[in-house]
Write a protein that binds this DNA or RNA. Structure first.
Lengths: 226, 226
DNA sequence: GGCGGCATCAACCGAAAGGTTGACCGGGTC
DNA sequence: GACCCGGTCAACCTTTCGGTTGATGCCGCC
């Protein structure tokens, strides 16, 4: 379920893949950007064309030709988040590949990134070699998942009991943030009946019987962010 | 950027505090270590003598002379955490200063670090200049707090209301684990009336009005574990 | 000795959440 | 077309929770 869109296009290569791989770095931490530059520029076939501190700038720069792979953080201090930026970048024709690079490996984050069109999902604690290998894999259009992430996806396939839908995850995250059903219904433009309906399904899937225990169970399984 | 500790075995000579500031970097992310190196080595008066991926190694290396400031992450993949390592480093005579560098600014993290003897507390999204300035401040033995962190501490001083009693914390932790009032009363050998009474006090102190928002608020402030 | 904070419990009431049944729609799949 | 699933909503009922008032006992403190 929810397999990666790697079957979509293996179209004939248009933008010179045999040259250097041109990278765009998007991360709001200056230190991380510097680190990625330092690590990636030691590879002779990589070229970092730009690094930006916001998701918005990454979208703008990725729209211009001359970028093969975007290394994208998920959390940004500002407005736009990584998944949204990823979706906007990959929606265009001839778009660069997006490689998500984040600290967390929760189910919710991984699914959101993949659904947004990310070609790969890496963790920031990855060693430099793994990072470089993933960039090359992504540049070739193949999906690149960190071992821990791949394991998590496998687990999810094997145990679909605790697989919440996108909407259910969204509702449960707001519950975890402390919102009441009424507040959630307003936030998501739903009726309270719908919110309750989602919650009943969530309780069934997680085998619990209250909102607090649902949050506890989902947190323990990494389905939502604390 | 390497995974192995790089001890500079040059002349151990004396602790020349007025010479270059000798730095030890401790972070489990290779990318972050490389980034810190890249950022800090552009400063002519800084010298990165080693970078290590675990808290244990940072303790071992900080014990040897030739380190003025340790840049310490709080979260490590392994066993020992940043606060413990900070405490062990600062406990010795003639110990280097420890500058905590982390992504989060929760009350619990900040207090734990300061209680452990950290000289400063920085956030990873800090710009390079701020970072360099904080290192120099720490090397001089003065405390260096990021603006956001300082604000948070002021807030906490001004509002000591968020101090839960031991029993209240105990109850709230069980709430966070997903237990109902009836389950909590059995677990703690109380009547449900008492549990409710505790909860009402908790809500007042945290300025919330439901168990889920109490858990969210307490988690954000680090009052309970997750 | 009184004062206040903490912990304990009871009774009560209204509001929120939990649970059920049933219904409609749209997008996939067989 | 038939079917299932996800998402949406309504009505109804039961249980739990939130909030209040009031009470008791213990402890530390000035």
């Amino acid at each position: 379920m929810t397999d990666t869109p790697q079957t979509s296009d293996r179209a004939p290569e248009d933008d010179a893949p045999e040259g250097r791989i041109r990278l765009l770095l998007a991360d709001d931490h200056p230190v991380v950007r510097a680190g990625l530059r330092a690590v990636l520029e030691t590879e002779p076939d990589f070229e970092v064309v730009a690094d930006v501190p916001t998701a918005e700038e990454s979208v703008a720069l990725a729209a211009r030709p001359g970028v093969d792979v975007v290394l994208m953080d998920l959390q940004f201090g500002g407005e736009m988040r990584g998944p949204q930026a990823t979706a906007e970048i990959t929606a265009r024709d001839g778009a660069p590949r997006v490689l998500v690079l984040t600290t967390y490996d929760t189910d919710a984050d991984i699914l959101a990134a993949i659904e947004a069109g990310a070609t790969g999902y890496l963790l920031k604690d990855a060693p430099p070699e793994e990072l470089a290998a993933a960039v090359r894999t992504a540049a070739a259009g193949k999906s690149a998942l960190a071992p821990a992430v791949a394991l998590r996806l496998m687990d999810r396939m094997r145990t679909p009991a605790a697989a919440l839908s996108r909407r259910e995850t969204e509702v449960l995250q707001l519950v975890a943030d402390g919102l009441s059903n009424a507040q959630i219904s307003k936030r998501l433009f739903l009726s309270q009946a719908t919110v309750k309906s989602h919650l009943v399904h969530i309780y069934t899937k997680l085998e619990v019987d209250s909102r607090t225990s649902a949050v506890a169970a989902a947190t323990a399984q990494g389905l939502i962010r604390r």
